[in-house]
Amino acid sequence: MNFFWAFIFGGAVCAIGQVILDKTKMTQADLMVVLVVFGSLISALGFYDPLVTRFGAGAMVPVSNFGHTLTQGVIIGYQENGFLGALEGGLGKASAVLGAAIIFGFTMGLLFRPKG
């Protein structure tokens, strides 16, 4: 059942994204930014964690989860160490994923040539 819900929810987020792409002048980059900001907002309101519990990877794979990760980092950091903690916490929690993306990106950029 987890698999089913991951597929349905993840697919639904992407389907809504596609409607936005086709019906507005937004580019894919714009869409990614909007989703991340939206993820941050939902997370701060406390609605994102229930989504993760319910839909698993369906809520964790879309980029909105990046906003969620950052926001939770900020909230927990603030609890532990005030404003400085908030500043550390955001990127701190997302650093593994960001680091991996940058390192893989760099490596692939060196290894492969664009094929067009």
């Binding site: 701060a44 603030y78 997302a94």
Partner: peptide, 22 residues
């Protein structure tokens, strides 16, 4: 070029919303 804006807006919005929430 594309990830940069995502990170910037992600961090700014997360810090803003997260602090408001806190």
């Amino acid at each position: 070029i594309i990830a940069g804006p995502v990170i910037v807006y992600g961090l700014v919005s997360a810090t803003g919303f997260g602090l408001l929430r806190s």
